[in-house]
Design a binder for these strands. Structure first.
Lengths: 161, 161
DNA sequence: GAAGATTGACTTCTCAATCTTT
DNA sequence: AAAGATTGAGAAGTCAATCTTC
């Protein structure tokens, strides 16, 4: 069976995929535990605060946040439920289109992001810099950017409209 | 804030991490949907069947399966609950150590794996070969192997004991 | 006591369906 | 009808606690 399953080109694609799966799970678990313990935030919560802080005016439409985070619309609703309960994000309405609800970063949310960032970014940097030389890290980042969905986070040209 | 958060080395590590997160989520969603629709299996179910098929005698201790899959012990129990209910895996006991329960691949399970493999592996190969030249794919696989937990899946030297 | 396995309670997400507004 | 947002139901996994066997 081993011979049947691992043939030619499919082998390295499967290998890459399995390693992506395992690496993601392992990294997410440890980074999540640390972020949760030290700052009471989940990975997606941190990423959401980060996107909002980078966004013009500290606010985004929920649908754009979903795209940026790689979550479904309902996933964003539930994520923001928690952040709103914690006072880190508020709802905002759009005057020109009543269907739209904005997620607005509060001052508390911005402070929480800033307080969390140094240790969280250090943890991320530590994991990667322990394992990769600077040029290897750049190569990895470039290769990962070609995966579906991976480039969306960089698309800063998406305005608030 | 943008300037404060994206400085120096932390930038590329964060970039790689976010792309890993998004790429994983996107890939997992699409591959999972296809595998589920065509063969009624989840990603982890497929991986478990694959590990069992590769293992000597088609059986593994649950704790080794957890290690190989990158899941917690309870995650493996719940995963195998489903596979046992479907008749793809059976429980086996270890005579020399009654604490141990084996997961044993059934004939049905092996057939299901073989039937699923061609289309699933083709889907994986398609995703990666669309985006990477062969040498790039090899580079990506090598780099991903350095992530924590990512190399465990290759450790075939872990015997059944 | 430690190792292997399981269970209960929970988190985080998804999909399908729904509601409102355009 | 399509877009944005939300809700109910459920999938998949975690951790902490427990049970049995070593």
């Amino acid at each position: 069976l081993r011979g049947q399953l691992l043939i030619g080109q499919q082998h390295s694609a499967l290998e890459a995929w399995v390693r992506l799966l395992r690496g993601h799970a392992s990294l997410r678990r440890s980074l999540s535990a640390q972020l949760q313990e030290e700052h009471g935030l989940g990975i997606s919560e941190y990423e959401a605060l980060l996107l909002l802080a980078r966004a013009d005016g500290g606010l985004m439409r929920r649908v754009d946040l979903a795209e940026g985070l790689g979550l479904s619309p309902s996933g964003v609703t539930r994520l923001l439920d928690g952040l709103e309960a914690g006072g880190l994000v508020e709802k905002g309405t759009c005057e020109s289109d009543l269907r739209v609800t904005y997620a607005v970063l509060t001052d508390t949310g911005r402070q929480r992001l800033e307080r969390s960032s140094s240790s969280h970014l250090a943890a991320i940097a530590s994991v990667f810099e322990e394992r990769y030389a600077p040029d290897e890290l750049a190569t990895l980042a470039e290769l990962l950017a070609r995966l579906p969905g991976a480039a969306a986070a960089d698309a800063d040209e998406c305005g608030v409209s």
